[in-house]
């Protein structure tokens, strides 16, 4: 089976709707098929990977920790749009440090997140074979 470039586009804040959690589950399942997977966080999607989420007050499962497992699933192309952060008063420092371990480099931890401009994001999206929108 030829490898295709799959892009999962995340544009919704977590918890208010089920999109974020559904996307995460689909991504983890897709990882089993060893395709070339990328994730994009655009618009309110950037809230999915903010640091220090606490769901104690809303009685829902805090699934933010699961994004940190993506590196284990060889998902290490995570694009975050800078304009989306700027519009929301956020910076890269407000995001969880998502990393992956490079087995060929003595398990060195490398960052998975790339902050890109809107223009670069458009190019990244255009370079994919399949898009899934959440």
């Amino acid at each position: 089976m030829a490898t295709k470039k799959f892009m999962y586009v995340n544009r919704k804040a977590p918890y208010g709707t089920v999109y974020a959690l559904e996307a995460l589950e689909v991504v983890l399942i897709a990882a089993a098929f060893e395709q070339d997977i990328s994730l994009a966080f655009i618009d309110d999607g950037v809230y999915q990977i903010t640091k220090e989420q606490s769901t104690d007050g809303i009685g829902m499962k805090n699934f933010s920790a699961t994004y940190k497992a993506l590196g284990d699933y060889d998902i290490n192309k995570i694009y975050v749009e800078k304009e989306s952060l700027d519009d929301r008063g956020l910076t890269a420092d407000d995001l969880m440090p998502l990393v992956w371990e490079d087995e060929d480099d003595d398990w060195a931890e490398k960052p998975s997140i790339k902050i890109v401009s809107r223009e670069e994001m458009a190019a990244v999206l255009a370079a994919q074979d399949v898009h899934y929108s959440f």
């Binding site: 990882a31 089993a32 499962k61 805090n62 920790a65 699961t66 940190k68 497992a69 284990d72 699933y73």
Partner: peptide, 11 residues
């Protein structure tokens, strides 16, 4: 406990 998921067999 750390990631809130059971890992896939490959992982």
């Amino acid at each position: 406990e750390e990631y809130q998921i059971a890992p896939a067999v490959r992982v």
